[in-house]
């Protein structure tokens, strides 16, 4: 697992993808932070509340290659015949993307410290925000890795992930269109936005935490199943 994690990380930084991902993330989060500064407030939540939309565009960048490219270059033959389990293979891939994401999110710590230079921000809220962002990212990355495992074309993986994440972003809007209240309530339970906003506004619910974690776990597991199934094809 460590070997894969290491290779993926170096791959992010030898190809432009890692840099583009970080640059776009830093650019937008920086822009949001500028408006926080301009508003003369220590309330950093605006940065995080706007983040979701950006992630929908850039997380597919991180995950599009992770499985699809292996299949295309036939390097999956090396990984699948190596004495490692499918689980640790997928986990290595997931953790590499997640680590990249952590590097990106870590910039918000800098923002918080800048704010702290002017006045003390509400640290617990800041920590809650960062935690929320990490959990949201983990869930989205797991979904992206899963979609990447379904195809050997990274472009399809990217567009597919983008479409799915866009749907997830707008799921509240869809829920309000459904007239059947029962189905609407089911759909809105799946809302990433509502749960994420809880973190952003400083509410830490165990159920929200578990929601994102279980999404990540389920999709990592599904990715393993996809690899498993391919062997039987």
């Amino acid at each position: 697992m460590l070997a894969i994690l290491k290779r993926e990380m170096s791959n992010y930084f030898t190809s432009p993808i890692g840099y583009i991902f970080l640059a776009v993330f830093y650019f937008f989060s920086g822009m949001f932070f500028t408006s926080v500064l301009a508003a003369n407030t220590t309330d950093i939540t605006y940065v995080f509340s706007s983040l979701f939309t950006v992630l929908v565009f850039i997380i597919p960048l991180l995950t599009m290659r992770s499985m699809s490219e292996e299949k295309k270059q036939k390097t999956d033959q090396l990984l699948l015949t190596a004495p490692i389990s499918l689980g640790s293979l997928v986990l290595g891939k997931f953790l590499a993307a997640f680590l990249m994401y952590c590097i990106a999110v870590s910039v918000t710590v800098v923002y918080a410290l800048i704010l702290a230079a002017f006045a003390t921000p509400e640290w617990m809220v800041v920590i809650g925000n960062i935690l929320g962002a990490l959990l949201l990212g983990a869930a989205l990355i797991a979904i992206g890795v899963f979609i990447s495992s379904l195809t050997e074309n990274q472009l399809i993986a990217a567009v597919g992930s983008f479409a799915v994440m866009m749907f997830i972003l707008m799921i509240d809007g869809f829920a309000s269109l459904i007239s059947n209240t029962f189905i609407a309530s089911i759909v809105s339970t799946l809302s990433f936005m509502t749960r994420y906003n809880n973190f952003v506004t400083g509410i830490l619910n165990i159920s929200d935490l578990l929601f994102f974690l279980s999404f990540a776990v389920v999709f990592i597991y599904l990715t393993v199943r996809v690899l498993e199934k391919r062997r039987w094809g």
Partner: peptide
């Protein structure tokens, strides 16, 4: 195992690649 198409990561150097395989195995 040496498959029909050698499973190489084209963006790595030979040394890096072999080190990766070493850790993988």
């Amino acid at each position: 195992y040496l498959p029909e198409h050698p499973p190489l990561y084209l963006d790595m150097t030979v040394q890096e690649y072999l080190e990766f395989v070493y850790q993988l195995k």
